[in-house]
Design a protein around this nucleic acid. Structure first.
Length: 497
RNA sequence: GGCGCUAUGGUGCAACGGUUAGCACGUGGCCCUUUCAAGGCCAAAAUGCGGGUUCGAUUCCCGCUAGCGCUACCA
């Protein structure tokens, strides 16, 4: 592939983006959105999406979490063209880069105790401690001028920040940035070797830059918590003689209390939303519009529409609050408005999960299945509703909801009427909406009760729920045989209630 | 504490010097109705504060305040 350059000196030939999670936890909604924005951008630009696992933190790393993160991405419908690469398998490349920087004088060896370097006295990482510590200047340690005895075997490698100048970079979302180099500490590139080790481990700052250069990343789209680190990385690009990518920092997602979203806000992992039964596309739509806008009034955007409209210019600069109620609205919106064919597979897997699925619903009774799902969906909010609330549509084994019985099986006369209704319906030669309607209303007239009494009581009898689709549509969906037998069964249940 | 970013109804976005400040979620009410949803209609609800610039500021500039981020040999 050939790459050309535009006026900004940035590669314009092929867009290459990456999502780089670190396996220190599950895939949370913030990470999911970052992944999504990268993916939207890559697909919009016809570019390449790369997945890179940033597992350079040996202490906090949990390799077993990687598969869960990948599952989360797959559920979200995010696919990648390269990777997953693992930084832990690229350590030699990172070390070599650090040593090369040290050899060229762009970095230096340092054997100061970490805490000491951090600003004179050891400072606890708490707000109070910081306050008491007072103003903390960026200090340069004595090692900066060189200690001949130090090597990568006995010291860390720090970047030598060039003083007396500023570092600039352009952010596609936040605009041009510039910071005085005096504000940037001589950050560590390669940690000092641990006891018994011959090599130190590369730090995040080093690894990202080395890998982003090596993987020819053109656009770094990530959370805005990284914006303060970016000058360091810009410095590294220059020191390594590489052109920096375009940076695009996306705002953070906050909890209802406006603090950064975390576990204590409840469900923050993508997996928990999958398990609750949200539709991936609804989740995508919701997340896309949290921190991005197409610039026009649009709430319901299919994924293809988002992709075709996505641009970095539409990304917001303000942190946004994760609004669960809106997510739920999106889900019901998708449950109701999706072309039925797009919804069926999701319902099928839900029924499979619940052990209710019958293969014939994908075969001979496919039409029935489609119609039934279509009948049920206006009243569903989450996928599991199909196997719980609507269970009676897919199984003969269902219970009468106690609340439904209490509400609609009050009238003593109902038991006998349900039996008469069963007889009446059993005698019908045509089974359709109007025939059922007439049969029921006729009985109500004969018995001198309001049709509503019989309708509500019958609903509980045939589906066990107080809430269901319109009764006669429900009867048609269930079929004559089932309705009649369920009514007869209900007569007994009614007497024993 | 230092450095930085941000600031439109409760929430997410729109208006990118001139609008009765728009849309959606949520909330409240009404209609519809065989349950419950859906749907339709209506309502309440915002430019953080203070200075500028300008004929005119939500919009541009400065200060304040608030929130958030960074301030690790975490990522």
């Amino acid at each position: 592939m050939t790459t050309s350059s535009n006026a900004l000196g940035t590669p314009s030939g092929g867009v290459r983006v990456r999502f780089a999670p670190s396996p220190t936890g599950y895939l949370h909604v913030g990470g999911a959105r970052t992944a999504l924005f990268n993916w939207f951008f890559a697909r919009r630009q016809g570019g390449v999406m790369i997945l890179r696992v940033e597992d350079t933190d040996v202490e906090r790393n949990r390799p077993e979490l990687v598969e869960g993160i990948l599952d989360g991405l797959r559920w979200l419908g995010i696919d990648w063209d390269e990777g997953p690469y693992f930084q832990s398998e690229r350590l030699d490349l990172h070390r070599a880069a650090a040593e090369k920087l040290a050899a060229s004088g762009a970095a230096y060896f340092c054997d100061c105790p970490p805490e000491k370097y951090a600003g004179g006295d050891a400072v606890e990482e708490t707000d109070d401690a910081r306050k008491e510590a007072g103003p903390r200047r960026v200090t340069r340690c004595a090692c900066r001028t060189g200690k001949p005895a130090l090597t990568a075997q006995n010291a860390a490698i720090r970047f030598r920040v060039p003083l007396g100048t500023t570092t600039k970079f352009d952010d596609a979302v936040f605009g041009p940035r510039e910071v005085a180099n005096e504000e940037i500490e001589d950050f560590v590139l390669l940690r000092s070797p641990k006891e018994g080790q011959t090599h130190g481990a590369p730090t995040y700052q080093l690894s990202v830059v080395v890998d982003d250069i090596d993987m020819r990343i053109t656009h770094v789209i990530r959370g805005s918590d990284h914006i303060s680190n970016t000058p360091k990385q810009a410095l590294l690009y220059r020191a390594m003689g590489a052109a920096p990518p375009i940076f695009a920092h996306v705002p953070l997602i906050l909890g209802p209390d406006r603090t950064r979203l975390s576990k204590r806000h409840g469900a923050t992992s993508v997996g928990s939303y999958r398990d609750e039964g949200f539709l991936p596309e609804a989740f995508r739509n919701f997340l896309a519009l949290l921190g991005w806008s197409p610039g026009e009034d649009a709430q319901f955007l299919r994924t293809s529409e988002i992709v075709s409209r996505f641009s970095l210019e539409g990304v917001s600069r303000t942190n946004g609050v994760f609004d669960r109620a809106k997510l739920e609205w999106y889900n019901t919106e998708y449950l109701q408005k999706l072309p039925i064919g797009d919804l069926l597979p999701a319902v099928q897997s839900e029924l499979e999960r619940a052990g209710l699925w019958q293969p014939e619903w994908a075969g001979a009774k496919r039409e029935w299945f489609s119609k039934t799902v279509d009948l049920l969906r206006p009243r569903t909010r989450l996928l599991p509703d199909f196997s719980t609330w609507a269970r009676a549509f897919f199984s003969d084994s269902f219970d009468y909801d106690p609340k439904a019985r209490e509400k609609f099986w009050k009238d003593e006369r109902l038991g006998a009427m349900l039996g008469k209704l069963a007889d009446g319906l059993a005698a019908l030669s045509d089974w359709n909406h109007d025939a059922c309607d007439h049969a029921l209303r006729e009985l109500a007239a004969t018995e001198e009760v309001k049709a509503g009494l019989l309708i509500n009581g019958t609903r509980v009898a045939i589906v066990g729920q107080a809430v269901a689709p319109p009764l006669f549509d429900t009867m048609v969906a269930l079929g004559q045989e089932r309705v009649v037998s369920r009514l007869r069964r209900a007569v007994e249940a009614f007497g024993a209630r």
